[in-house]
Computed example of a mutant assay.
Amino acid sequence: MSRANPAREARHRQRQDEIIAAGRRCFRQSGFHAASMAQLAAEAQLSVGQIYRYFVSKDAIIEEMVKRIIDTRLQHIKETATADLPRLLAWRHALNEEDEALMREVAAEATRNPVVARMMAEADNRMFTQACQNVKRDHPEMSDEAIRACVEVMAVLTEGTAWRRLTPQKASADRLYTLYQQINTLLFRTED
């Protein structure tokens, strides 16, 4: 059994990173659907054939990009308490604005492409599972059913807020914070 060459693996990973970075720029500019492999190759300063050495398809590039965005979000979720949600929602905090925009592109592409729709479903499952683990950590007294319901409501609030970032906020963040705190209190109260 031969050992992998660490220098070669590092070069391979670096080239993948460069392709992902070029893909992010192309997808932000043209959308996933309209961005061509030729456009991506030009942006990465590679030939299309060279890109196919690292990714078997445009969908594979999208999948790796989504995986990286979700990995970052999962790390953030692990480090965030459920009590922090009202503040994040009220002031419309985004972990990464570019990632938010790219995930909107992914959502649009998922309506046309079943492979990307599967990626979205897998990403959602990963995020939902981690959020449930966080709620269980912060509220061990809650039943699994109650946790799933609370996480579903939190997901709707969070994802809705991500879409609302596209428009000017129409209520004061301070007032929204109070409302979100009330929702949080309702969601995470001890079950009767």
Rank of each mutant, 00 (worst) to 15 (best):
M1N: 13
A4D: 08
A4S: 11
A4K: 11
N5F: 12
A7K: 15
E9I: 00
A10W: 00
R11Q: 13
R11F: 05
Q14F: 02
Q16I: 09
Q16S: 11
I20W: 12
I20A: 03
A21Y: 05
R24E: 01
C26E: 03
S30R: 07
G31V: 00
F32R: 00
F32A: 05
A34Q: 14
A34C: 04
S36P: 03
A41H: 13
E43N: 12
E43C: 08
Q45P: 06
Q45I: 15
V48Y: 05
G49V: 03
G49W: 01
I51D: 07
R53W: 04
Y54S: 03
F55K: 01
V56P: 15
V56Y: 14
S57P: 12
K58F: 07
D59Y: 10
A60Q: 10
I61V: 10
I61A: 02
I62C: 11
E63W: 09
E63G: 13
E64H: 01
E64S: 09
K67N: 13
R68D: 15
T72M: 11
I77T: 02
E79R: 08
T80N: 06
T82F: 15
T82W: 06
A83G: 04
A83N: 10
A83I: 00
D84N: 06
L85E: 08
L85Y: 02
P86L: 07
L88N: 04
W91P: 00
H93V: 15
A94F: 11
E98W: 08
A101T: 13
M103V: 10
V106T: 02
A108K: 15
E109Q: 09
T111D: 11
V116K: 04
A117M: 09
A117K: 06
R118E: 11
R118H: 09
R118W: 08
A121P: 02
E122Q: 04
E122R: 13
D124N: 12
D124R: 12
N125Y: 07
R126M: 14
T129K: 09
Q133Y: 10
N134T: 10
R137F: 07
P140C: 07
E141T: 10
D144M: 06
D144V: 01
E145T: 05
R148N: 13
R148Q: 05
R148C: 09
C150A: 12
C150D: 05
C150G: 11
C150I: 08
C150P: 04
C150V: 11
V153H: 04
A155S: 15
V156M: 03
T158I: 04
W163F: 15
R164C: 03
R164P: 02
T167Y: 14
S172H: 09
A173V: 14
D174Q: 06
T178P: 02
Q182S: 02
T185W: 14
L186C: 11
L187H: 02
L187E: 14
R189E: 14
R189V: 10
T190Q: 14
D192G: 12
